[in-house]
Computed example of a mutant assay.
Amino acid sequence: MSTPRFLDLPPGVTPQKIETPQGTFAVLEALPVSGVVERWPALLVPGLTGSKEDFIAVLMTLAQSGRRVVAVDLRGQYETPGPDDPAAYTCAALGSDLDALAQVIGGGGPMHLVGHSFGGLVAREAVIDGRTKFASFTLMGSGPAGIEGRRARNGRKIMEEVPELGLEHVWQHRFEPEVLAGDVPDDIVAFLRRRLLANSPTGLSSMAEQVLTMRDRTDELRQIEVPTLVLYGEDDDGWSPETQSEMAARLGAECVVVPGAVHSPAVEAPETTAAALVRFWNAAEKHYLDIHSNSL
């Protein structure tokens, strides 16, 4: 589990609620502190046990590139409510939520999509379903199919223990020991506990099942021909660096390895991660405009 480096919101970042036909979503919205919004917006999607706060360290830098940047809590995560229906938490259902958010945020125009870990699997569904024409797609610490290694074992424990024993038990026996071993400050420990306990138990266990069993859709994603970036930490312990590198090659995607990062580059190496995203977004926008200007 990753922790935000700070919980105080930087300049230009505010909590908001976004209303869509599919429900209300809690977000952090970042706007340029200086200058104007002149580039296309971006939507950032967190991982299984994460939330919009996992992007705090990169939001201001991304917005200063001239964009509106929105980080979201998925349905059933932290401050976005969700039902007690497991069907609401499939990758396809959550991907449909992203389509609805994209329509509100982008107004039907092109926008960038970033999915971290499980959020990458969800975001991939939104790209493949074709309802939104994204300007670019970034898989951040995410893979082609179900998660691997130690994080797969943790996912199975969440799937098994949450319905039977509850979120408080999972916090005390799974998350709190790891957090305390990492010498995390007390205020962040309190936030992490509050965040976990605010999750929908049905949502968390259902999403854990999804991240464990998701099938490989890499070939389908390649057919969409959206500019794609695969970005991951050099020591990723979710999907291995080798797995993600191979996925990038199959996609014909750009690949960025973030030095010093593990599974959460936006938390562990925010400056490097933000710089890579801004560069990729700028290139994707130029490519899009070049294509469309030539078609006029």
Rank of each mutant, 00 (worst) to 15 (best):
P86A: 00
P185C: 00
L289Y: 10
Q16S: 10
V114W: 01
T14E: 14
V104S: 09
Q77K: 03
L98T: 02
G95Q: 04
T213E: 15
G146K: 10
F6L: 06
T24I: 08
A198D: 15
P201D: 04
L139C: 06
V114I: 10
E220C: 08
Q244H: 10
W281A: 00
L9V: 06
N282R: 11
S295Y: 14
G108T: 06
D290C: 12
K133H: 13
L9S: 06
M159E: 15
E161P: 13
E160P: 15
V179N: 08
A145Y: 14
A266K: 09
E246M: 09
A30N: 04
L121H: 12
L31E: 06
S2C: 07
V267Y: 04
P11T: 00
P81Y: 06
V226M: 05
R150C: 05
A269V: 10
F55P: 06
T243P: 15
L212T: 01
G47L: 11
V211F: 09
V27M: 05
P15Q: 03
G130N: 13
A261P: 15
S34M: 07
G107R: 03
A266W: 07
F118H: 03
E29Q: 14
I105M: 12
D73S: 04
G50T: 10
N154A: 08
V33H: 06
A248K: 02
L44G: 11
E176P: 15
P4R: 01
P11F: 02
M60P: 14
D186R: 10
V179Q: 08
P259Q: 08
P265K: 01
F25R: 05
E161C: 04
G82M: 11
D183C: 09
P46N: 06
A42D: 12
N294C: 11
E160K: 14
A249M: 08
L101Q: 05
R156G: 09
K133C: 09
I291W: 14
T243L: 12
I105R: 04
R174C: 03
F6W: 13
D73N: 09
V104E: 15
Q210W: 07
Q223G: 11
G12I: 08
S136Y: 12
T273M: 05
E178L: 15
L74H: 05
M159T: 11
P15D: 02
A152S: 13
A135Y: 13
A145N: 14
G252V: 03
A249P: 14
T243I: 13
R215P: 14
V258A: 05
R151A: 01
E246S: 07
N154G: 09
G166T: 07
T272P: 14
M111E: 13
P21S: 00
R124H: 05
A261G: 13
W281P: 13
G12Q: 11
P10H: 02
D85I: 02
D73E: 11
G115K: 00
V189D: 12
K157T: 14
L139T: 01
V184T: 14
F191L: 08
V189M: 07
G146E: 12
R217V: 02
V122E: 08
V127S: 02
C91F: 08
R250K: 06
G233S: 09
G115Y: 01
L289G: 04
V162P: 13
V69N: 01
M214I: 03
D235F: 10
V104M: 10
L31W: 01
A126E: 11
D219A: 05
Q210T: 11
S65Y: 07
Y78H: 07
Y78K: 01
A123K: 02
E246F: 06
E79Y: 04
E246Y: 09
L101H: 05
